[in-house]
Design a protein around this nucleic acid. Sequence first.
RNA 1: GCGCCCGUAGCUCAGCUGGAUAGAGUACCGCCCUCCGAAGGCGGGGGUCACAGGUUCGAAUCCUGUCGGGCGCGCCA
Length: 586
Amino acid sequence: MKAQIADLVTQALARLADDGVIETSAVSTPVVERARDPSHGDFATNVAMVNSKAAKLRPRDLAERLVAALPDSALVAGVEIAGPGFINFRLTDNAYHALVPEILRLGHEYGRSRLGAGKKVQVEFVSANPTGPLHVGHGRGAAYGAVVADLLAAVGFDVHREYYVNDAGRQMDILGTSVWLRYLELCGEAFDFPSNGYKGDYVWDIAATLHREHGDDYRHTAEELFAGVPADAPQGGDKEAHIDGLIRRAKDLLGDNRYRYVFELGLNVILDDIRDDLSLFGVDYQEWYSERSLVESGAVNKAIDRLREAGHLYEKGGAWWFRSTDFGDEKDRVVVRDNGQSTYFASDIAYHMEKLERGFDRVIDVWGADHHGYVPRVKAALQAMGGDASKLDVLLVQFAILYRGGEKAQMSTRSGEFITLRELRKEVGRDAARFFYVMRKCEQHMDFDLDLAKSQSSDNPVYYVQYAHARIHAVLRQAADKLIDVTPSEGTHNLDRLVETHEIDLLKTLSRYPEVVETAALNEEPHQLTHYLRDLANDFHTYYNAHQFLVDEANLRDARIKLILATREVLRNGLNLLGVDAPEQM
RNA sequence: GCGCCCGUAGCUCAGCUGGAUAGAGUACCGCCCUCCGAAGGCGGGGGUCACAGGUUCGAAUCCUGUCGGGCGCGCCA
């Protein structure tokens, strides 16, 4: 609808250009916006003000010339010049009526477009280390990334959702060793658990599985275990040196195969849990990309060699450094440690290079805001390797602070650990969690009110929107009870009966939906959709209160039923994009 | 100290990338079910857009500085 108005303006501009009033080259593409104030009509454009200099006319004079040059359109009921030179368009009711059969015909396609023209976009999100269950901090990134991906798909991009699995590296060794240590405790060995080990209950669970299935096969004595290991922090030592020592002992005592078995047991159990958790949260991926596969395929070493050959590496203190400061980073970064191990950053260089090589037109990373300092070095590496760093966009998601009873609730009361995503889902439900997480723009710190998310009242925006959908179904059920046929008539039949203010307002809101999806997608702003759906639900509830739908007069009833069926369609489409259920009953 | 993000109604937040008189929800007060679900609707009060400059026809929005809050500045990931 907006595009149709913009088209009229473009034609008017072209006419003026033909007449030599303005130079074609100077004409900027017209910006047509929804009028904020109803008294300004439905759409407004500022072209006259923007182009007044190029036309050497005062804005209002140019506006008059433009209005005179506008082609006739059945959509437009009136055009006015207002304020400093705005051109306001008022549409006919018929223009809105025509929308209803279009929405009913398009169904779940209404709001979708081919704007993205099938361009390949990768969205990588969550990518939490598989060293424990997802907690609520990951939840926002999960919900946000999933909706951004779905929005991009809705406007015609070819979207590839990916989870980068950090299954290599020191943290995973710490996990594997933690599992083995808990296993040894189950075998009856007594010792102090390392202060830097993973202490969550889930580690016990994995260890118990190992013990149940393999008895004492993996047992070694505590004395063997701690032989030559530096002291832990509580004993006046260093916790990092202590855990590294234990990892070394685990590898030595178990040998490659058995160590790997324990390591993979821990990895697989946790990864399965994460997959399951995300799937129940309505988050699905096309690919789970393994960091270890990058290491084992040699891609990481290849990336390092490539940087070295291009002269971007230097040796200092036994380590290899990437001169990222050449590309705007604050300081240089280590890619190979003095012990010969490549860093996480080295894997990430290889990974991001590989993303570009896979042929994505655009690569989106969704990261927690605490990683923001990491962005310049990744972009620096891509540049250094000759990649197009502008294809990479990193979207930073701020933390969500949970509140319960007005108090901060970051810790789980039971375990004393961070509240898991699973616990959140159980407490407030998937729909509320998904909706709340994307209600705010990502760079905004968010207060997540658990009590509100749980409440089944109009205060709760999720219920408010879902209720509008359920209410429409209640009307249809009511019609069925009264044996009223609600099959909509063809095309625009009877729609000229929709003349009430509430009806036109609702139609206008319905017409906005494709624009909302488009801007929400292109700006990666799911919150625009949540706000829109609240508006739409509000328009519907207001209408519902003001007018009866199942009236005796068949033609009017048909028109109203068609309108609420169209409303149902848009509510459902919008909620679907958010990963929220559209219930028929509540 | 340096870098990134954020300061808008009592509270939680929008504000369509520079437009017209700054908007919602919530909370507070007052109304509305003989009527399709009151999980709803209507009305009311409430603002120095943190502060100070600058850019221009026009600034909550852009630039600079100050103040306040969050995060980051590892041979961790």
